[in-house]
Simulated assay, not measured.
Amino acid sequence: MKDHHLASLRIYNQQIHNPQFKTPEDVVKYMVAMQAQDYAGAKWAIGLRMKIANENFIEQAIGDGKILRTHLLRPTWHFVLPQDIRWILNLTAPRIKAANAGMYKKFGVDDAIFNKSNNTLAKALEGDKQLTRPELVDVLQKAGIATDELRFTMLLMQAELDQVICSGKRVGKQFTYALLDDRAPAYSPLKHEEALTKLAAGYFNSRGPATVHDFAAWSGLTVTDATTGLENIKAGLINEVIEGKTYWMPDHEDLIIPKNPKAHLLPMYDEFAIAYKHRDALVKPPYLEQARHVIFEQPIIVDDQVVGTWRRTLKKTTADITLNLFGKLNKTQTKAVETAITRYQKFLF
């Protein structure tokens, strides 16, 4: 299996080629968790994986709580479904808190402050209230809790990791927070190994071919835990060894790789790039140096390979798309990129 074919299988399994999903929540359920650090781009990442997508439709699903946004893996913002948020947090939160320990110490926040902050936030949000960040700053300050510098961000993240708060509906362009109990009622927790197995199944079935180290890097789990999860699902996967690395993937008898050039405008931090420890397979070989920061840029994909970057300029009724191609495209490839641009514009308007 060559690098190009590796990328082709990944883009197929990630539902970017020939997407079949009809609702935003179906996409997130399949992907288990999707990085949502760049909010506008993350909505487009969902839209890419739908048969027909509209930004307002996805925003509505988020506002209605069908999709939640919280610090979930590594730690970074992710979209996740209400029924998945708690078991994933039970699995990942301890490692995130340990990684944040140095920052907590630097800014003088400890368990006593976190407990006071969590209780204050919970009381303020009682009754299915949803408050903006400025409103929550005011709530905490009135309770005598310092929110200067990075403390406010740490207090909110800790409350997310402690399963106190999660995303609410946006007010204009402002994000709000709600009680997790109001948006994702508690249920019987999964045992540690059950959760590892479930996360591994979601990852390898949606992002394969991938290695156990890819899974560990994406999830923030230890390689030991990642290996345990993979071991429990191996029977349902196939694998191939390339240059000493074992790649695991679902066995799709119906796999069809498009014969004609196909192009996509991917958002920043899309799972097609972010979900793997090493990303060279996703980039056309001559462009490896130009695409070295591929996860921090908006890639143009042609024939399953990164061939450039793009940016948008929003207007009242449309979006102008500016391309930065790393090399020349032929007429058929150019037409495919034009089709991708039109698809994105229709998503927005």
Rank of each mutant, 00 (worst) to 15 (best):
N239M: 13
S219A: 07
Y247F: 12
W248Y: 15
R207S: 03
S219L: 04
A217E: 15
K234W: 07
G220P: 02
W218A: 06
T224N: 13
D225F: 08
G229D: 10
P209G: 03
T211L: 03
A216G: 09
E240D: 11
F204C: 06
E231A: 11
G220Y: 07
A226H: 12
I233G: 10
D214H: 07
A235F: 11
G236K: 13
A226L: 08
E243F: 13
F215T: 01
K245V: 06
A226S: 15
T246S: 10
N232V: 05
D225K: 11
R207M: 04
P209W: 00
P209H: 02
T211C: 01
P209I: 00
P250V: 00
I233C: 09
S206D: 07
L237P: 07
I233V: 13
M249V: 00
G220M: 03
T227P: 10
S206E: 03
T211R: 01
T227G: 11
A217T: 14
P250A: 03
T228Q: 13
D225V: 02
M249Y: 13
A226K: 07
A217N: 15
N205V: 07
W248G: 00
A235S: 14
D214A: 03
W248S: 01
T228V: 14
D225E: 15
N239T: 14
S219G: 06
F204T: 06
W218E: 08
G229R: 04
T222V: 02
T224H: 14
W218R: 09
G244E: 04
S219D: 05
M249W: 01
A235R: 12
M249T: 10
H213V: 10
K234T: 07
E243M: 11
A217M: 15
G229C: 08
Y247W: 05
N239R: 14
A217D: 14
G220A: 00
A217L: 11
Y247H: 09
D225P: 09
I238V: 14
V223G: 08
T227V: 07
I238E: 13
T227H: 11
W248V: 00
V241W: 10
G244V: 06
N232K: 15
T222I: 07
E240A: 08
R207G: 03
T222G: 06
A217W: 15
I242H: 08
E240P: 02
T246Y: 05
V241E: 15
K234D: 06
H213W: 13
A216T: 03
L221R: 09
P209S: 01
V241L: 11
G236Q: 14
G229I: 05
K245G: 04
T222A: 02
D214Q: 02
P209C: 01
T228D: 09
F204H: 06
G229P: 08
W248Q: 04
A235G: 12
E240K: 13
E231C: 00
F204R: 01
